[in-house]
């Protein structure tokens, strides 16, 4: 779904830092959304935590570097890391080229999927006002 020039798939959940989360069974797939990528530019490094690392809702668990900015990834749920995209170690640009596909970053085994309710999720009517607001905030250059 194209909203204000950004590709924002409708089936995903988004956090305020523009990371996306996709439900697959009892796991969540995590990545950066199109808005974040356009803001960040070339991704040069993705921290890949060990599998089995415990994560908690609202707590940071990894870092992503673009330019000289080291950004933070937060988990929306309690659970543990069940997989990381090893490809990103050698090829973090996959995030730039295919952020919803080959550029996936982590899988989290979630204890309670209802914690996702805190995130942005839905059609254009939900995502557009949010993006509109962020675009106004960020597009000062």
């Amino acid at each position: 779904m194209e909203i204000l020039g950004y590709n924002m798939p409708e089936d995903l959940y988004y956090d305020e830092h523009h990371f996306w989360f996709r439900k697959e069974g009892d796991e969540l797939v995590v990545g950066m959304d199109d808005f974040a990528i356009k803001l960040a530019g070339q991704i040069v490094f993705v921290q890949l935590p060990y599998e089995g690392k415990a994560v908690s809702a609202g707590k940071k668990f990894a870092k992503v570097e673009s330019g000289k900015w080291l950004g933070t990834v937060y988990s929306p749920v309690d659970g543990e890391i069940s997989a990381v995209n090893e490809e990103l170690e050698e090829n973090p640009e996959l995030i730039n080229s295919d952020c919803y596909g080959q550029g996936w970053m982590y899988r989290i085994k979630a204890d309670d999927m209802s914690q996702l309710d805190e995130l942005k999720h839905g059609g254009r009517e939900v995502l557009e006002p949010w993006l509109q607001e962020d675009k106004a905030k960020f597009a000062k250059d």
Partner: peptide, 12 residues
């Protein structure tokens, strides 16, 4: 700075 992630304008 009114943003959650820095943008080009903020770096400048």
């Amino acid at each position: 700075f009114g943003v959650t992630v820095p943008n080009t304008a903020l770096f400048r």
